[in-house]
Nucleic acid binder design. Sequence first.
DNA 1: CAGCTATTCGTTTTT
DNA 2: CGAATAGCTG
Length: 735
Amino acid sequence: MAMAFDLHPGYTVPADLNACQREAVTYLDGPCLVLAGAGSGKTRVITQKIAYLLRECGYRGGDVVALTFTNKAAREMRERVDRLVDGRIGQGLTVGTFHSLGLRFLREEARHVGFKSQFSILDAHDALGIIQELLATTDKARLRAVQQAISLWKNALVDPDGAARVAATPSEAEAARIYRSYGATLTAYQAVDFDDLIRLPATLLSENADVRARWQRRVKYLLIDEYQDTNLCQYRLMCSLAGMRSLFTAVGDDDQAIYAWRGATVENLAKLAADYPALKIVKLEQNYRSVQRILAAANCLISRNSNVFGKKLWSTLGQGEPVEVVPMDDDIAEAESVAIRISAARFERRAQWKDFAVLYRGNQQARVLEQALRNLRIPYTVSGGQSFFEKPEIRDILAYLRLIVNDDDDPAFIRAATTPRRGIGQATLQALGQWASRTHVSLFAALFDAENAQVPARQLAPLRAFGDLILDFQGRAGRAPGGPMAAGVPAGDLPSAVSGSAGRAVPRQAPRQPLANQQARAKQPAPALLDDLLGAIGYERYLFDSLDERIARGRWQNVLELMDWLKRKAREDNLDLIELTQHVALVALLQRNDEEEPDAVKLSTLHASKGLEFAHVYLVGVEEGLLPHTGRDEQDGDSDRAAELLAQRIQEERRLMYVGITRAKRSLHLSWCRKRRRARDDVAREVSRFIGEMGLAESGASGEPDSAAVSPGERLRMLRQLLDAPPPGNAPARK
DNA sequence: CAGCTATTCGTTTTT
DNA sequence: CGAATAGCTG
C-alpha cells in the first residue's frame, strides 16, 4: 500500500485507491492487463494511471494515448483526467476512440493506402446502398447478411481472396465476390467505411516499417479501455502501436464481453497472455457500486458461464433489499407497471427521476415504455435507437459537406443533387451514372460532361447550376484544383486488399478541368461557409414546403442544432471545412446538451447501458427468446457445430443480462410478460432461464399472477392522490 | 419529375 | 403497428 509513496515520494495517489488499483496504476515495467469487474473502479484506474504517467514519470501529454470504444466514454475519461492534471502537462494527450485515432492516422497516411487525404466516410446506410446495387436485390435479409459478413471479414483481417477461400456455401461465396467489388467501389469513391478506419491503419502499420517506426515513436504509452471488446483488427493495431517496448495497460472484463456479434473476440484476453509472456495481470474484485444481494445474483448467474479468469465480486455496501421479479400479462401492462412503480418509488425513496433506469434488449421495446411514461408525465431520455446523425435532415446536410470535400463521393452526390428537389431526377441520374462508369469518372465529373452523357437537353440547366454551386463552395473551402490534393491516385499504388478490383469501379482518371473562378477565391472560414451553404440550397423552405409544419419545425430545429455544433467545433478546434466534415462523420451523438443533465428516467438498451450506473434499475422483458435472444436457428442439421454456436450465443446473452444487473446500485426489478405484442399478433412467452440462474431464494420467481403487484388501476388511483397534480413543465425531456 | 397513396415487410445488439 | 418501398397520377 505504502509502496507507491515510497517509490515516488511526493506523489499523492489518492488514499481511496485500494491495493489492487494502486498496483495497476503504478506498474510500469511492462505490459499490464487489468481484469476489472463491474463497478470495481476501472475508469478510475485508467485516469489515475494517466495522471501518474504525466505527473510522476516524465511522460508528456503527446506521448500517451488512451483508447475507448465510444465517444461518450472518451469524453468522460478526458474530463476526469483534466480534473487530475494541470492543463499544461496534459497538452497533446490523446483520449479517443479507436475510430477517431484511425481517422487521424488515415488522414496523415492516406496516400500509403491509395486514398487522397480528403476521403469520405460512408455511413452504414450508404454502405448498404452500395451493396444493394452490387447485389442487385432488394431482399433485406440477404443484404444485411452480406454487409455483416463483409464487416466480420474486415474485422478479422480477411481480404477478399481469403474470404473466397474460406467461403463454404454458395451464398458465402457470393458474399465474398461482393466483398471484392465493394472494396473496389469504395476506392473509386475515395471513401472508407467504419471498419476501414481501423483496418487500414492496422494493415498499413504491419506492412510498412517506416510508418510503423514513426508512430511507435509518437506513442510512448498506450491504454486500452474495454479490452474484452477488441477484435483482431484492433488487437493488431494496438500491438503495432505499442511496439517492442510493449508499454501498455489493457483494462477489461471477460464477463462483460457483449460484442462478439460484431467481431470482438474474448480470446484476445488469453492471446494477450500468450503473446506477452511478461504480462502482468491485476484483478479488481471489490465492487464499489452495488449492494450484496445484487452482486450475489450477478455472481450466481455468471458462474454458469465458462470463463478464463474467474472473478467474484464483493462489496461492503450492505445486503440491500431482495431482487424483485414480477410476471406481467403483456408488454403494455409491463410498461404501465414500471411507470407506476417508478413514480411511487421516487416518492417513497425521495429519489430523483435520474436515479432510475429502464433497460431492455431491443430498441423497439422503448416504444411502449415511452408511451407509458408519457401518460404519467414522467420525464425520460432514450439512449440508443436512431442517432442524431442518422436523421434524414442531418444526412442531407452532411451529404453536401461530403460532396464539397470529396467530389468522388457518389452516394453524397446523389443525395445532395436530389434533395431538395431541383429538377434532377431518376432518369438524369441514370444517364449520368452510365456515362460515369463508361468513362471511369465520378458522377460529379460526369455532370460537366452531361452533353455527351445522353442527358436530355432540358436537364442541362439544373445540372449545371448544381455543379457550379458545389464548385463555388469547393473553391471557398480552400480546395485548390491542381494543388497537392487534386491528382488522382497513382495506379499501381493500391493496397493489396483492393487491387484486384473488378467491375466498373477501377481507379478513376484525374478529375475535370479546373474552372477559372475557383482558383481566384480565397479560403473562407467554415462557419461563414456553413451559413452560406444552408441559405444557398434553400433547405428551410424545402422542409416547410414539403412537410407538415410540425414535423418541419422539428427537423429544422435539428438542422440548426447541427449547424451550431459544427460552428462551435470549427472555432474551438480551429478546423477548416474539410477537417470538420471528416470529423463529423464520426464524432458522436451525445456531445451536445451535456451541460444540462436533465432530471429524467433513462431508457436504454442493455448494450448501451454498459459503463453506466443507476440507483434503481428496472430490467424488462426477461423472457425466453427475448433476453436469451434467439433468432431463426431452428434448423440445426449438424448438431455438433450448431449446438456449440448456440451455447456461445447463450453465454453472450447471459453476459448481457449480467451487464444489466450490475448497473444497479441499490435496487433491481425484473419483469417478464406472458404474452407480448409482436408485429401483428400476440406471442406467448415464458420466463427467462436466467431468472432461475440468479439463485434468488425467497418469493415466487415464476408462475402465478403475482399478488405482490397491486392492480395497476388501484395503484394509479393511490398515486394520483399522492401526487395530486403533476407538476407543470414536467413534459418528457427527449434528446 | 415529384408527390401522393397503397402495399408490403418485418425483429437484435452499434463504432 | 409503423416504416420503407413500389407504383400511380398530376
